[in-house]
Design a protein around this nucleic acid. Structure first.
Lengths: 140, 140
DNA sequence: TTAGTATATTCCTTTTTTTGCATATTGCAA
DNA sequence: TTGCAATATGCAAAAAAAGGAATATACTAA
């Protein structure tokens, strides 16, 4: 039997890192979160409303994505905003989608009530103007 | 709070299928198998030798890839040959590798002894000629 | 300080994967 | 048929992930 010298195509460490990346993506909710982040950063309550999931659960899934280095977070007052940290992720998701979803499935519509500042600019604005008004009324 | 009509970016079914694809790829051994299949089909004993893993274990991992529709198999005599069924997979793996492995890691060399017919053409040939010789010696 | 909103984490149970081991199957030749 | 080589499958224990529930933290406003 022939004994051959063989240069490995890939070392174990790389394969393990790659597997870790796929592991972070192997969950439907995490994929949907990344899809929602496609258009830019979103706060947790927005994801919660749009996916119709409990807050703690969304936070757990975000923690998995964060620990895998796939998303980054930023605090703004009471809200946390998450965004995609690796733009190549979107290519990866696009490629995966073409592989599993050949037929253009029709996307469902549904109603959401999201409490986040971005979804409620008027409400936020109203609060801000009321605050300003009150401040003006105060004696210096 | 505003109530908005929202067209889902992705239906649950698609996300689930995508997750299933990533699930099949979330294992280092399966990734290494796919890398070995990059150059074309290989038999099980070849993978076994090149990855230095037990036969039953390689077969199990191949079964996962097969059930996910990522590889196809073909029987040729006593050997089973596997090949990549979805060429887009290679793109996916390439993209994933660039994401996790920025520094060009040096690939290790190692010696393998593979018993498969392709790795031992001379041995196979020798057997074949011996068979032919024996047949000639037989009285019709 | 207290209360309320937004978010994160910890603990625990259930389910799914992993992995080793034994065994079954298949194809071929004697 | 028997025996052997190559491959596949079934089973069980260990490890990991999923998901629910309670709780902790952070910030803001009163």
């Amino acid at each position: 039997m022939q004994k051959k010298e063989y240069t490995k195509l890939m070392d174990n460490a790389t394969a393990t890192h790659q597997a870790r990346l796929f592991k972070a993506l192997m969950h439907p909710v995490r994929i949907q979160i990344l899809e929602l982040l496609r258009g830019g950063e979103q706060c947790v309550c927005h994801l919660e409303a749009y996916l119709d999931l409990r807050q703690a659960y969304v936070s757990q899934q975000l923690a998995v994505l964060r620990k895998a280095g796939l998303v980054s977070d930023r605090r703004d007052g009471p809200n946390s905003y998450y965004q995609i940290a690796r733009p190549e992720l979107l290519q990866l998701l696009d490629l995966a989608r073409t592989m599993v979803c050949p037929e253009g499935s029709t996307l469902a519509k549904h109603r959401v009530t999201c409490p986040c500042p971005r979804c409620n600019p008027s409400r936020d604005e109203a609060i801000q103007t009321r605050i300003l008004k009150l401040k003006e009324e105060l004696p210096c």
